[in-house]
């Protein structure tokens, strides 16, 4: 089982849901923080890291001895990461998306692979919870390849919880893609609804079953609920705007540790997701 936790709007409570869900379940479980630009799951799970791997992405290196300056590589590159200027080939490694197109079209075999460092992937454990996260190198602008490296640690025979970045752009798609279920965390405010709609539209394109958690459920208005009903999106959990929850979060503590009555609700949330995934597969 692979569940991704996404939101559209940032700050709705993705990490709160991901970490409390992970800690509530008795099953063999792994949490993967794919918000590699600003990972924060470790602040709550407090894992002991026992393996660090540097992650790289392949980029082209041009052998100007072999190159005939035919420009085929520059023409195929959608991101303009190669420019051919008279008898010079310029590469712009930070623009390269590692598609390999330039190497495939080069008639002279003048292009080989070298590497650009993306960041690191750290693996560890906190009690029974397995933990993986990515840390994007400072200055690196492209997070999807690092997110994919984090996702290589997915163990299909256990429960995997993916904490996705906010938004709806490439990093979010990379985090949600090929997961069994997307849990969208939102809040019942105009801003929450606006970004939820964008998020749900993205999930529809990926054709992944989706359900909602409404955080701070007693603020704002009913528009998110109306939208959920119209779109037939199940509301799987509601969390009120409670000072005790906010205080626990601010100290890096888990809701289920401070307020044990929430554990049952998170177990119920997982059971609901499992049923929806099973139903979708039938």
């Amino acid at each position: 089982m692979i569940i991704s936790i996404a939101s559209g709007k940032g700050g709705t409570g993705k990490t709160t849901i991901a970490t409390n869900l992970a800690i509530s379940l008795e099953s063999d479980i792994q949490i993967l923080d794919c918000d590699v630009e600003e990972p924060n799951v470790h602040l709550f799970i407090k894992p002991k890291i026992d393996k660090t791997e540097t992650a790289y992405t392949p980029i082209p290196e041009i052998d100007e001895e072999k190159c005939t300056f035919c420009k085929k590589c520059a023409e195929i590159c959608r991101f303009k990461a190669i420019a051919v200027i008279s008898k010079t080939v310029l590469t712009f490694p930070e623009l390269c998306h590692s598609c390999g197109g330039c190497m495939a079209v080069c008639p002279e075999d003048a292009i080989t692979e070298t590497n650009r460092e993306l960041g690191v992937v750290e693996e560890g454990r906190s009690g029974k919870i397995k933990f993986v996260h990515g840390l994007l190198r400072i200055g690196e602008a492209m997070s999807p390849p690092l997110i994919k490296k984090v996702k290589n640690y997915i163990k299909p025979d256990i429960i995997n919880i993916i904490d996705a970045p906010p938004g709806t752009s490439c990093p979010v798609i990379a985090a949600m893609n090929n997961t069994d279920f997307v849990l969208m965390v939102t809040e019942p405010t105009p801003f929450g609804l606006h970004d939820l709609i964008l998020g749900v539209e993205a999930v529809k394109l990926l054709n992944i079953p989706c359900g909602l958690v409404i955080n701070r459920s007693d603020i704002g208005n009913k528009d998110v609920y109306d939208y959920a009903e119209k779109e037939e999106l199940p509301i799987l959990l509601e969390i009120p705007f409670d000072r005790k929850i906010a205080e626990a979060y601010s100290r890096g503590k888990m809701i289920v540790d401070e307020m044990p009555e929430w554990k049952e609700k998170f177990i119920g949330l997982y059971n609901n997701i499992e049923n929806l995934v099973k139903k979708g597969k039938n």
């Binding site: 959608r78 420019a83 051919v84």
Partner: peptide
């Protein structure tokens, strides 16, 4: 309206 690398492309054209 280039997706990416407008400067690189325009520079190539100027050259």
């Amino acid at each position: 309206n280039a997706f990416k690398g407008a400067g690189i492309q325009t520079a190539t054209m100027v050259s």
